[in-house]
């Protein structure tokens, strides 16, 4: 049962952080949560397709289809998170401008859908194989509900915590969260890419498993929130940092865009 808790919690926590951050952003921008429905529906559909087609996907690209799809999803989310930061900073600079709804919707929907596709597929596979096929339904169900419950509860507090901030600080904090999430996604993507031998193998730069074991509760928590890795490689660290830099540059660009003659174009 603890395995089910850990697996479900890890995935749910990661998705919740993203979704709650986006929810807080959209309240700060004055939008409702209509994008969430589309994102969830697409995500669940995507996760099912991914899980069902996993065999075909795995066989593709010389057996590294999974790694490519996963890293594509992760990089996609990271790019969209940078877009999110761009839009958020633009909104901060031009509080009176209502951002183009469709752009925002599309960004959010696709982000949520991609995240849930990845996280959901893993939960689906685990629940189906260990729960349904192996007959441990009660254990997987209990563990899954516990993991889901804890994840949703943490997300609830996270959301209301963000909600308690005034609009401007809320947007700023959301940008920070998005920055870290994006970097963590890029870090994970680098692992998949080195697993598929796209990125070369490297010696770990350091080993902090003495401080936080990756399999420990704290380690899992840090992994889900900050993309913590006990033994990161140079690739991982540089992709992590490059994501941070891209995100910061996107925000600077949005900040500078303010001086352009037609600021409204930024939202298009």
């Amino acid at each position: 049962m603890t395995d089910a808790v850990v697996i479900v919690l890890r995935e749910v926590l990661e998705a919740m952080l993203l979704i709650c951050m986006l929810m807080a952003t959209s309240t700060a921008m004055g939008y409702r949560f209509r994008w969430m429905l589309g994102g969830l529906a697409l995500g669940v559909g995507g996760a099912t397709l991914y899980a069902l087609g996993l065999e075909q996907i795995s066989m593709a690209f010389e057996g590294f289809g999974q790694e490519y799809v996963n890293s594509a999803l992760l990089v996609g989310i990271a790019v969209l998170l940078a877009t999110h930061n761009f839009l958020a900073v633009f909104q901060l600079r031009n509080p009176s401008v209502m951002l183009a709804y469709r752009t925002l919707m599309l960004t959010f929907v696709v982000m949520v859908a991609m995240a849930i596709t990845r996280e959901g597929a893993e939960i689906y596979l685990y629940a189906y194989s260990y729960g349904v096929l192996a007959g441990n339904i009660t254990a997987v169900f209990s563990g899954g509900v516990i993991g889901l419950g804890i994840g949703l509860s943490v997300g609830t507090f996270f959301y209301y915590g963000l909600r308690s901030l005034a609009r401007r600080p809320r947007l700023i904090v959301c940008c920070g969260v998005s920055l870290v999430l994006g970097a963590s996604m890029m870090g994970q993507a680098s692992v998949y890419l080195s697993q598929a031998d796209v990125l070369p193998y490297q010696e770990p730069l350091w080993d902090s498993s003495g401080l936080f074991e990756e399999s420990s509760l704290m380690g899992e928590l840090l992994r889900a929130t900050l993309g913590y890795e006990a033994q990161p490689t140079l690739n991982q660290v540089s992709l992590y940092l490059s994501s941070v830099i891209v995100s910061i540059l996107a925000m600077l660009a949005a900040w500078r865009l303010h001086r352009l003659p037609e600021p409204a174009r930024g939202g298009e």
Binding site: S58, E67, L125, Y128, V191, Q195, S209, E214, T233
Partner: peptide, 29 residues
Amino acid sequence: DTPEEFESYELNREKVIVGNSQGVVFIGP
């Protein structure tokens, strides 16, 4: 018949292998 996820913190590897199938990972040096 059931899928399995090959995972290792020390090797930094994580890969789902569908039932009755195979998966490849590169490790090392």
